[in-house]
Amino acid sequence: MSSIKQFQVTFDCADPERVARFWCEVLGYVAPPPPDGFATWDDHNRSLPAERRGAWFACSDPTGVGPRLYFQRVPEGKVVKNRVHLDVRVGTGLVGEERLAVLEAECTRLVALGAVRVHLMAADDENESCILMQDIEGNEFCLD
């Protein structure tokens, strides 16, 4: 039996390219080049039947370390809390006020990109502080 070496994280969303480009900015990921024969993704999308235009988009870690992110259009909107979410690890190894300063700075950057700050989860006896947020379509994630 072989072990799994790679995985991708898939997001259901209304506007795959918009959400993918948001996450590219958050994580420093890159969008793939358009398919062969097309100068842009818009050119590629115009070549598709209307129902398939903009149906998906993807992005990946330029270093090849992080998982590929795949975004697929679904007809229904988000209605409940995610069962799985991303932890964006910007404060690893930091504690106290130093950690909070880094989290707050990143939160400010992401809010400018369209994210929503939900609330600060303050440090306790077991966990350091983190900030619960939502992406541009309401998917929860944590700044950790």
Rank of each mutant, 00 (worst) to 15 (best):
residue 27 L to A: 08
residue 29 Y to N: 00
residue 23 W to Y: 08
residue 73 R to D: 02
residue 111 V to F: 14
residue 5 K to F: 03
residue 132 L to P: 01
residue 35 P to M: 02
residue 22 F to R: 09
residue 140 E to C: 00
residue 19 V to A: 10
residue 61 D to F: 09
residue 65 V to S: 12
residue 59 C to A: 10
residue 106 E to I: 00
residue 61 D to T: 00
residue 134 Q to Y: 04
residue 102 V to H: 10
residue 19 V to Q: 08
residue 36 D to L: 09
residue 21 R to S: 11
residue 43 D to Y: 02
residue 124 D to Y: 07
residue 61 D to Y: 00
residue 43 D to N: 05
residue 24 C to S: 04
residue 29 Y to Q: 06
residue 31 A to R: 03
residue 86 L to M: 14
residue 100 L to D: 13
residue 121 M to P: 02
residue 38 F to P: 00
residue 123 A to M: 09
residue 142 C to G: 03
residue 2 S to P: 14
residue 101 A to M: 07
residue 85 H to A: 13
residue 116 V to T: 14
residue 54 G to T: 05
residue 73 R to S: 09
residue 13 C to D: 05
residue 51 E to N: 12
residue 100 L to H: 10
residue 138 G to D: 03
residue 82 N to D: 14
residue 101 A to S: 12
residue 93 G to V: 05
residue 19 V to Y: 04
residue 95 V to H: 12
residue 105 A to D: 13
residue 54 G to M: 01
residue 92 T to F: 15
residue 121 M to V: 15
residue 42 D to M: 03
residue 131 I to G: 02
residue 115 A to W: 01
residue 42 D to R: 04
residue 133 M to Q: 05
residue 35 P to D: 07
residue 65 V to K: 13
residue 7 F to N: 12
residue 129 S to Q: 12
residue 71 F to S: 01
residue 101 A to P: 07
residue 96 G to L: 06
residue 3 S to Y: 12
residue 90 V to L: 11
residue 121 M to D: 08
residue 57 F to Q: 01
residue 136 I to Q: 07
residue 32 P to W: 06
residue 104 E to K: 15
residue 112 A to R: 11
residue 88 V to N: 06
residue 64 G to I: 06
residue 110 L to K: 00
residue 120 L to N: 04
residue 127 N to E: 15
residue 86 L to S: 00
residue 106 E to H: 12
residue 14 A to P: 01
residue 18 R to H: 13
residue 34 P to V: 05
residue 88 V to K: 07
residue 53 R to T: 08
residue 5 K to G: 09
residue 14 A to V: 07
residue 49 P to M: 08
residue 75 P to I: 04
residue 124 D to E: 09
residue 60 S to T: 07
residue 35 P to I: 02
residue 51 E to Y: 09
residue 101 A to I: 06
residue 47 S to D: 04
residue 116 V to F: 11
residue 27 L to G: 08
residue 28 G to P: 01
residue 18 R to D: 02
residue 104 E to S: 12
residue 66 G to P: 02
residue 117 R to D: 04
residue 122 A to C: 09
residue 95 V to Q: 14
residue 33 P to K: 11
residue 13 C to E: 05
residue 6 Q to R: 14
residue 23 W to I: 00
residue 49 P to E: 07
residue 139 N to R: 07
residue 93 G to T: 04
residue 48 L to G: 01
residue 104 E to A: 13
residue 33 P to S: 10
residue 13 C to G: 11
residue 71 F to H: 02
residue 128 E to W: 07
residue 45 N to V: 02
residue 27 L to W: 00
residue 144 D to R: 10
residue 76 E to L: 05
residue 4 I to D: 04
residue 56 W to T: 03
residue 87 D to Q: 07
residue 83 R to T: 07
residue 90 V to H: 11
residue 21 R to N: 15
residue 19 V to L: 15
residue 67 P to H: 13
